[in-house]
């Protein structure tokens, strides 16, 4: 029944489950609509018409962390904001990834002081760091594609183990 019936023999493609799952995860990764500071404007520019991130299946920014699987920490994280960022991260369902966008989120940037977290990796695990102050939209897109490469190489067993650890 279905398409094969009409068209005849289409052949068989074999792949591993892991590859199929990872392929699926990279094709529609939904970032959380979550901007903090300057980098959020460049993140918006990356979403808008000139750079158009929807070419990579990322046009859907979800305002709710419960519907998203990628957190782009766009901007400096203050000590007052840190618990909020951590809570948002905890609310995201597995599997989830984090991009630290910009110097402030990666290492504190020019703000080495009492108010700013010296890198968001002090509170949440980061997969990809994007440099720049703020990074150009191209740099963000490159960061996202780098993350895709990482995701394509992931093992399903690792996720299962991580879930057991947290459970």
């Amino acid at each position: 029944m279905g398409l094969e019936h009409k068209l005849g023999d289409l052949g068989i493609v074999t792949t591993t489950l892991e590859q199929a799952v990872n392929w699926g995860r990279t094709r529609s990764m939904w970032p959380a609509l979550f901007g903090l500071a300057c980098c959020a404007i460049e993140m918006m520019a990356a979403q808008a018409s000139h750079y158009d991130m929807s070419r990579f299946g990322m046009e859907l920014m979800r305002a709710s962390p419960r519907q998203s699987d990628l957190m782009i920490v766009a901007g400096r994280v203050s000590r007052k904001m840190a618990p909020v960022v951590r809570r948002l991260y905890d609310q995201m369902p597995e599997p989830k990834w984090v991009i630290a966008m910009g110097d402030c989120a990666s290492c504190g940037g020019v703000f080495n002081n009492y108010a700013i977290l010296q890198g968001v990796d002090e509170i949440i695990p980061v997969d990809v760091y994007v440099s720049g102050c703020p990074p150009r939209p191209e740099a963000l897109i490159h960061g996202v594609l780098t993350l895709y490469e990482k995701v394509r190489g992931e093992k399903l067993t690792d996720w299962a183990m991580a879930e057991e650890e947290t459970a």
Partner: peptide, 24 residues
């Protein structure tokens, strides 16, 4: 929630360096 400590940080920098903070 986005308090950056710019004013305090500028006191620790020289006049030329402190300008970089104002951008942000």
């Amino acid at each position: 929630f986005l308090h950056t400590g710019v004013e305090k940080n500028m006191e620790a920098k020289r006049y030329w360096q402190a300008e970089v903070m104002t951008d942000r």
